[in-house]
Design a protein around this nucleic acid. Structure first.
Length: 637
DNA sequence: GGGCGCTGTCATCTG
DNA sequence: CTCAGATGACAGCGC
């Protein structure tokens, strides 16, 4: 189970990073909040006896996590959460525009090789205003380098180069209708020679930029080789990234298997109005494992049934229809949600820690016991001061102490001593040592060797050297003074039935009965306190190890983040250069190549790649003029 | 003499 | 209700 969780969590991290790389923000909280706690409970069930920490006051307060108050993972929860908060405190990771990874471009043969490479991109305005989108298309079909579509219409439609100005969604619908008409009239003209690098992409005719003058055709627009490289890189970007991750973390051997289609992953970055909910596309990501879905996940906009295993996949599907929810950034989402690694940490925690926990849960309280050490010590001194030859193990069973007590029976207790003579050490073992003892040393149970604590040894040595009687506890002395046939140790550890019978059969006054009850209560509480303290100590030590492991994990994640950011930045630069090249192959109504300073490429939700003016004011003007031109053109026709 | 750690004990809660 | 266990709080003790 630990291994499953480990691989699950690691795969989750990789998957999250991948999603961030392609511009999908993953919300892991929704999954982990709802699902991890049960995992903890299920997995750590027996371990609740390992550190039975009653966080009564923290019950159900761990940010909604239903953590059992005695769940030891609560400690890890707080510790790991603190660590990951420190990670986040290191600063927001570099942000990268979504559009960098949200493109698909068709490779189209191009004879027009004179590409103006001198345009510089104006990076000032990256805001995508879908209301001002101009859809540009080559008019001869050969150079239809893009105008991609993720929709199912796979036909290619040649047509004049047009730029459609859409002021609103309604206009877009109108334009689509016009486009259909245009397609019908132009489908016979010249089929496009379009190399589809990806499936189900299509060129769609759009309106003309100008009704009066058609721009000269882009004959055989051919992308430079680096563009093909770029596309191929993106086609295999997921595998590339997985490779990076695997290089960084050799332990991530079995990430979650997934199949990412970059085309499916093409997502718009900003305006949700561009989303086309009616589009039927393949799932953004497809998990090869099919398990139950998380029905609790709110499907905010898509309304699609939760068909994915993880809520993050639900998010992915949402991305198809709710692009506004997609931050196209490799941002702190990865690290924010890894904070479930506390939870997640249980999966990705240092294997040494897991092994240690496993080992302790495997051989739990069997090995204990300091519990009763001092008691046994005192009992030993009280019950059998003269029977030093008796081993402790014998005394632990109660035989030694019992026999010694019988030997020292007072007249008062002698009458009832025989009645309890059959109270065997087995009873004591059955009723006393059955649970709650924190850590009985394994040797104590398996062999007859008992290693007393150092202090006990010191006391013994001291008593031997100084020839002084061992110091008896107050209760020991009082019990001895009563002249009862049982030591305080036996009173404390005998079964309650025997104890009650003892109280009944002994001719004891009310005060004596109360005293014996107090002795028993105090003795048990003393053992409990010892166990409790030792548990607390071990918990602290375990948390220290956990902190060390989490710190190492944090460092690894930071290195990984830096590496990923670097790779993504390089890809962004490459994409910018290639976009510049593509823009230079396009012409405006005047026949001039589109300047990368004034235009940028944008991909809509339906998969179209459009040219978009960089500045809103300019785009507004352009859109308006484009729309007017379109209407003029329609009148002409 | 004060600080610190250990230990025992009490009170209280939970199962 | 009783009992056992767990734990925080407190006090005593020794170093």
């Amino acid at each position: 189970m630990h291994h499953m969780k480990k691989y699950f969590t690691e795969g989750l991290i990789q998957f999250t990073i991948l999603l961030s790389l392609i511009g999908v923000r993953v919300d892991v909280d929704t999954y982990l909040n709802g699902y991890f706690s049960p995992l903890i409970e299920t997995d750590g069930g027996p371990s609740s006896a390992f550190i039975q920490t009653p966080f009564h006051h923290y019950r159900d307060t761990a940010e909604g996590h239903q953590v059992h108050p005695k769940c030891p993972e609560l400690d890890y929860f707080f510790a790991s959460r603190r660590l990951l908060n420190e990670v986040r405190a290191l600063g927001s990771p570099a942000r990268f525009p979504t559009r960098v990874s949200a493109w698909l471009v068709h490779l189209v043969p191009d004879d027009n090789s004179d590409v103006d490479e001198q345009d510089d991109l104006d990076s000032g305005n990256d805001e995508v205003n879908t209301e001002n989108i101009r859809e540009v298309e080559n008019d001869h079909g050969i150079g239809e380098a893009f105008a991609l579509s993720l929709s199912q219409d796979t036909h290619t439609t040649p047509g004049p180069c047009r730029a459609a100005a859409e002021l609103s969604k309604e206009d877009a619908l109108l334009n689509q209708e016009d486009d259909v008409k245009d397609e019908e009239g132009q489908e016979e003209t010249s089929p496009a020679l379009l190399n589809q690098l990806t499936q189900s992409s299509a060129l769609e005719p759009e309106d003309l930029l100008s009704s009066s003058s058609l721009p000269p055709p882009l004959s055989g627009l051919e992308l430079p080789p680096q563009w093909q490289d770029f596309l191929s890189d993106f086609d295999h970007f997921d595998s590339m990234d997985s490779q990076h991750i695997s290089d960084l973390d050799a332990d991530l051997h079995n990430p979650i298997s997934y199949d990412v289609s970059l085309q499916d992953a093409m997502v718009p970055s900003t305006d949700s109005t561009t989303c086309r909910p009616t589009l039927s596309r393949a799932p953004l990501f497809r998990l090869e494992s099919t398990n139950s879905s998380h029905s609790d996940q709110p499907q905010s906009s898509s309304g699609a049934p939760p068909s994915s295993l993880f809520p993050m996949l639900g998010n992915s599907s949402r991305n198809e229809t709710s692009p506004s929810q997609m931050g196209g950034y490799l941002d702190e989402a990865v690290f924010e949600h890894i904070n479930m690694l506390d939870l997640g940490n249980l999966g990705t925690v240092d294997p040494q820690i897991l092994d240690r926990m496993q080992g302790e849960t495997d051989a739990p309280w069997m090995e204990d016991s300091d519990s009763g050490l001092s008691l046994e010590n005192s009992s030993r001194s009280a019950a059998s001061p003269s029977t030093s030859s008796d081993s402790f193990c014998e005394e632990e069973g109660g035989a030694t102490g019992y026999s010694s007590e019988v030997e020292s029976l007072s007249s008062k207790g002698a009458a009832c001593a025989a009645a309890y003579r059959d109270w065997s050490p087995l009873n004591l073992n059955d009723h006393i040592w059955h649970d709650h003892t924190y850590s009985v040393p394994q040797a104590q149970n398996s062999t007859s060797c008992w290693v007393p604590p150092i202090k006990t040894i010191k006391q013994e040595v001291k008593s031997e050297d100084e020839s002084e009687p061992e110091e008896m506890s107050r209760d020991e002395r009082r019990v001895q003074a009563l002249g009862l046939p049982f030591s305080a140790f036996q009173i404390i550890n005998m079964p309650v039935e025997d104890f009650l019978e003892l109280l009944d059969r002994q001719d004891l006054s009310v005060s004596e009965v109360t005293f014996l009850r107090d002795v028993r209560r105090r003795g048990k509480n003393k053992l409990a306190a010892q166990n409790c303290r030792k548990r607390k100590l071990d918990a602290i030590l375990g948390l220290q190890g956990e902190v060390e492991g989490l710190a190492a994990q944090r460092d690894a994640l930071l290195r990984q983040r830096a590496h990923t950011a670097k790779a993504l930045s390089a890809a962004a630069e490459r994409f910018e250069a290639l976009s510049r090249t593509v823009l230079n192959h396009l012409q405006d109504e005047c026949g001039q190549p589109l300047s990368a300073e004034n235009y940028t490429l944008h991909c809509t939700a339906n998969g179209r790649v459009m040219v978009q003016p960089r500045t809103s004011t300019t785009s507004r003007t352009t859109v308006t003029s484009g729309k007017t031109a379109k209407r003029k053109k329609d009148k002409k026709h």
